[in-house]
């Protein structure tokens, strides 16, 4: 019986210590390493036309029901809030040689979205939009 109680205590202590979030974690903490995060938050496109990619990004965000709050063509920045789920996203677009790289980070409620599938969904939507832009589907 004593063993059982000890085991239970150890488990609860481990769980509560794991859940302990410090100020440092909140300000500088990341769920994955920098490289891992950049990997699933970024997608490269075979074009050097930054403006076209940014316009496709705006279209995608309109399609997905975002309120676009900030844009800066020079910095390649677009940020907005989703009306459908309340999440906030910031996207940056930059050219690298003949490629354009889009990076997105998202937050839902009080936590960062760290599920790679969510980012994959967004980039799939962006790809469709780029295809439509390139082939002019009005």
């Amino acid at each position: 019986m004593k063993n059982k109680i000890n085991l239970l205590l150890i488990i609860f202590l481990t769980l509560s210590l794991n859940a302990c979030v410090t100020t440092r974690d909140n300000i500088l903490g990341t769920p994955h390493t920098q490289v891992q995060m950049r990997n699933y938050q970024s997608r490269s496109f075979d074009t050097s036309n930054k403006t076209m990619v940014m316009q496709a990004l705006l279209s995608t965000m309109q399609d997905l029901g975002f309120m676009i709050e900030k844009t800066d063509e020079k910095l390649g920045l677009v940020s907005g809030t989703s009306f459908s789920n309340g999440s906030k996203v910031t996207a940056t677009v930059r050219t690298q040689g003949k490629k354009t790289i889009v990076r997105l980070n998202a937050q839902s409620g009080y936590s960062a979205i760290s599920n790679p599938i969510t980012y994959q969904n967004f980039f799939n939507s962006l790809e469709q939009s780029l295809f439509l832009e390139a082939n002019e589907v009005e």
Partner: peptide, 28 residues
């Protein structure tokens, strides 16, 4: 449950719905 629950959040976010092209046409 605790370890797996964090992996499945937000999987339905940012997917295009089937009507998005019709909406685009309406708005353009």
């Amino acid at each position: 449950i605790l370890s797996f629950s964090s992996c499945t959040f937000y999987e339905d976010y940012y997917k295009l719905d089937p009507q998005y092209l019709a909406r685009r046409q309406l708005e353009t």
